[in-house]
Design a binder for these strands. Structure first.
Lengths: 114, 114
DNA sequence: TCGACATTTCGAGAACTGTCGAATTGATTA
DNA sequence: TAATCAATTCGACAGTTCTCGAAATGTCGA
């Protein structure tokens, strides 16, 4: 009850509400510097990022890259488009926006509680 | 936390731009569920939160609470007001907003580069 | 000063995570 | 089919972090 005044920062696509577990998973996924850098790469690329580009951008072993990709995918931050033997990485902006909205609401006076 | 070695001004008001190291430190500080819950408590409290309330809210040992408080303080997410034998916890909203802004900009098309 | 309370530090154990080499699976092409 | 390239899984190691009990430090009131 009383979910009044949920006016959060406008998101362009539907931002899902985050459960406690989900928000922790998201933050953990973002908290690794290489993973964040990878996500930045994906976000700033105009076309979906291929694994080869990701690998050369981060200078890590294939095993490690695969691990990080899975972490980001599991957290829901990216989507992996599998076409043939290549995988392409897409950002999922809504999840990022949901988290940003949560942090922003916390920063408001009284944590923007209802 | 490992070496950061990036002496940057810790502003308390205007949202500072986040270096790579700082943003990682912030995300790590937020990525622990108990720490996030503590931060939420602080944010949603109308008056600065005392350690006793924090401790009873989280149901953890004093040692662990002290550890988490230090992490949040080091990350710049809270300020600790030390008055006598009591410590009061204040949110530092600007840092949270800076991080939210960063995430939001990443979510924009092409990662809002430029 | 002493005793009670609040908080921190210390030390250690357990659990988690990032990393990589090696082996494996899967897809494409010759 | 064989060869090759892309990506994943496996197994192991190192470093980090969470957690707490015990001891120490700091503060206040009697």
């Amino acid at each position: 009850m009383t979910k009044t005044a949920q006016s959060e920062p406008k998101s362009t696509s539907a931002a899902p509400r985050l459960t406690r577990a989900r928000r922790t998973a998201l933050l953990k996924a973002l908290a690794d510097p290489r993973r964040f850098e990878l996500l930045e790469r994906i976000a700033k690329s105009s076309c979906p990022l291929g694994c080869a580009q990701a690998k050369s951008a981060l200078a890590i072993s294939p095993a490690t890259l695969s691990h990080h990709i899975k972490e980001l995918e599991t957290a829901g931050l990216i989507r992996v488009e599998r076409v043939g033997k290549f995988h392409f990485l897409h950002l999922q902006p809504a999840v990022l926006e949901a988290l940003a909205g949560l942090l922003c609401s916390l920063a408001q006076p009284n944590g923007a509680q209802g």
